[in-house]
Nucleic acid binder design. Structure first.
Lengths: 234, 234
DNA sequence: CAGTGGTCTAGACCACACA
DNA sequence: GTGTGGTCTAGACCACTGC
């Protein structure tokens, strides 16, 4: 484990354990350097990680302060973790409607940067949050990257399988959001009415080496679609 | 200007100028160090900035590659810039419906972390993108932080005024997203129908020192609400 | 195994907040 | 002015990629 990551984790769990509130001050840099017996740069890097995660903010000449969102029951929109990791407080389950290997459409082939004669896994799921319907998801995985999938994996967490089972590293993602009205078909899956609001989120996930491996379209139930973003100033 | 920020900007404009495409390789670290005549750490920091912005990705043992989103006409959901800066390709205008100083409601006072007897600016605007109605925005500014506002400022960019005119630094933000149906009133502002889909985005903006100064609720026209996020792996 | 990016150090110096 | 975080350096060493 990287030293700075280790330190970041320890500070994070320290904040968590001690229920430190928004605006409360953390020990000064000098103390942290001594505490963790490391160099200044390493501490600074660890704190940068936490700052980018939205857990703290640093004020020059003043100190390091805890940032803590106040609203519960909102889902973190960022985080590549395909949920799960981020929603460990929530109970997320999945019902697999379809799982098969086939050739991609033009659009899918383009998003995954493959030829139309290469195989993809197609997975259609309904995902539940605390027993309520959260979303309808249709995903395409490049079979050259994800050579095997089964219903059991798709019922739990595909991303966890990719990272732990296949030892692949998820790097980054492009996400596109749109608002619209549910079609008849979508509505029946989500047990809503045709014409009801929907949030559509298309995502392309890439490995750390830049290979796109997953193209997904997720349609959220507007009753459950509550998201938060901890912005960190671009 | 900070050296690493300067370098990041130069690399960014280099990518832009040369129309470098997704996946194309940038010069290796060693070259950049020589080119900018600086230390390795500084270059690394500059590249980190660009990576977090979603412009490049770095692969150990391989190289530095350009990342470039392909879809146009989507709005960047992140960036604290209250749009404008991010939408410089878009034409954003605002119509001010209301602008006044008053005492905050319980909720507003709480979000801005002030007492109910302190003044806030209340601004209600309709914002247009390329001449089309983009959203209805209601904002509350802590008057202790933003002592003066007028219609002209609100018609252009309030955030630019805060940063340039008042020399305040925007630090970070909490954002909450929800999907729902338009009320009669909202629909009439957006020239849509009651019951049509809406995306509601509540934001609290903080200065770099952690002071919340702006609480805004924005209701987007679902026909124009197209967003993208460049995820960078949490 | 050569090339490339990533981590870590020790320390100098700078910039800002706050009293 | 003191305390605190931020930048920058020069260099050692590590870890991954791809030939």
């Amino acid at each position: 484990m990287l030293k700075y990551q280790q330190i970041a984790n320890e500070i994070e769990s320290y904040i968590e354990r001690h229920h430190i509130q928004q605006g409360e001050k953390l020990p000064v840099l000098e103390s942290l350097i001594k505490e963790f017996d490391t160099s200044k740069s390493t501490i600074v890097k660890a704190l940068d990680v936490l700052e980018k995660k939205g857990l703290i903010f640093q004020v020059r000449g003043s100190g390091i302060f805890v940032r803590r969102k106040k609203r519960k029951n909102y889902i973190n929109l960022l985080s590549n973790q395909g949920f799960q990791k981020d929603l460990e407080k929530f109970d997320i389950t999945s019902e697999v409607l379809q799982l098969e290997v086939h050739k991609p459409s033009e659009i899918v082939a383009q998003q995954l940067h493959i030829d139309r004669d290469q195989d993809v896994y197609y997975v259609k799921r309904i995902r539940y949050i605390e027993g309520e319907i959260l979303c309808l998801e249709e995903s395409y995985y490049n079979k050259a990257v994800v050579p095997y999938l089964n219903k059991e994996i798709a019922t739990t967490s595909i991303f966890q399988y990719i990272e732990d089972g296949l030892s692949l590293k998820v790097g980054f993602s492009d996400m596109y959001l749109q608002i619209g009205k549910l079609t008849d078909k979508e509505a029946s899956y989500l047990k809503l009415n045709s014409g009801d609001p929907k949030l559509t989120m298309e995502s392309i996930f890439y490995l750390t080496n830049g290979t796109p491996f997953d193209y997904s379209t997720v349609i959220y139930n507007y009753n459950q679609a509550q998201f938060y973003i901890l912005g960190t100033g671009i």
